[in-house]
């Protein structure tokens, strides 16, 4: 195996490891689902309202079919 004068970047932990402490990570992740849920909830609610608006505002007024 060849010897190199320059060390590998992986020699320094800062280049390969996440410097964030586990405790800090836990604290941040604790609040993440709330924001994600709020965002998803708003998106789904808007889609549901849009569907209802098209169904009652466009589809039904166009008259029944069978």
């Amino acid at each position: 195996m060849a010897e190199y004068e320059e060390p590998s970047a992986a020699d320094r932990p800062v280049n390969v490891a996440d410097p964030v402490l586990e405790a800090d990570l836990e604290r941040v992740l604790k609040d993440v689902p709330r924001g994600a849920l709020a965002l998803c909830g708003i998106a789904v609610l808007l889609m549901l309202l849009a569907w209802l608006a098209v169904y009652f505002g466009v589809f039904l007024p166009r008259g029944p079919i069978s």
Partner: peptide, 24 residues
Amino acid sequence: IVAGAIGVIVVVIVISSAAMVLHP
């Protein structure tokens, strides 16, 4: 929550279809 949203749509379709005699 997602099942509830789908449920709302299905209930609206079923009730309006039955009440207004809508079908393909």
